Amino acid sequence: MEFKKWALTLFAAGTLVTSPAPCVAQTSEIEASKASIEYVTVEKEEYPFLNDKIGTVIFDRWTEENLKTMTNAACNCSVKNFIFCDSITSGLAMIKSGRADFLMTTDITANYVARRNHDLKAINTPGGLEIVMSMRSSDGALKDSFDAAIKKLKETGKLAELETKWIKELPVGQEPAAAKIEKASDTAETIYVGVSGDMPPLDYIAADGKPAGFNIALLAEISKLTGKNIEVVSMDSQARFTALESKKIDVFFWMVFVSDPSVKELMKQNPDEQSMNKKFIFTDPHCIVKTGFILKK
């Protein structure tokens, strides 16, 4: 079968989108525990495995009813209901207890979880999604400096090196380690970055409570290139927008997309979404992922 040109995705840490045909998988997690990981072809932009199911997602910008309406309209499916969760831990607990049938996340996170929880499986769908960093709309200069650093990391191959080390070649029995972010200087500006740990191994909080994994390694490189001190702040996913708007943090990791016309029209009907886009800006993407679903076997 051939993938459709457009694959609709709804993402736990992002928004409702339609993205171009799939990119190459960003993780080698599929090389093991293949029985726990499935890649599905979505034909006619339908998601039948979501029909009459209860989903959970780390999402707080809309009401649960609005999210269900948007999902069913865009995916041509009939999700029964959504129950918001405040972390990936609580979302997985809901699946295991039977309160929810699936958790929406990225393919990298779905694969990561499925390989470490033998009672769960990952279903990954086509469509490339872009991970970015969110900032206040007034911080255009900060965005420019981060964009320049991301561009440099791509050009030098350093970004690909980080992906290989922290994502593609991460062994099942090894959790993401903490990369050290060196202090740029005593006089440099300090940028506070919020990390929730709800998208492992990208966004990860270690057992000792310290942020670790790919995003921390990326921030260490950005600090070197921008000459800015970077302090990482652990926080709940639900608190990120409030913390950013109140200037308790300056940056957090997020998802943005360029939707196709039909989805853009749906988004126009949601004033809360449009209001958010006026308040915040986003860096250029630094990682490409796909949509993943975590379900019980």
Rank of each mutant, 00 (worst) to 15 (best):
F241P: 06
A13N: 13
V195M: 10
K264Q: 14
R115T: 08
E231K: 15
H286M: 09
A141C: 11
F146H: 10
A206P: 05
V233Y: 05
T164I: 06
K278C: 02
A25K: 13
I95S: 01
N72D: 15
L162H: 07
S138W: 07
K4S: 15
N76L: 09
D208V: 07
K96S: 06
N229E: 15
K296N: 07
G14D: 01
D101R: 03
K158Y: 13
V289E: 14
K152M: 07
E161P: 07
N215T: 09
T109R: 01
T125I: 14
R240M: 13
K53Y: 02
N215S: 14
I95P: 04
L219Q: 13
A184H: 11
L159A: 02
A220F: 02
P211M: 02
M235Q: 06
K228N: 15
T187I: 11
A100Q: 03
I88R: 12
F214R: 00
C75M: 15
S234L: 00
N229I: 03
K143A: 13
A243W: 02
K154T: 08
E64G: 00
A212I: 08
K268H: 14
S145L: 05
S246A: 12
K297D: 08
M235L: 06
E175H: 03
M255F: 11
E45Y: 07
K247H: 08
S90Y: 06
E2S: 11
I181H: 04
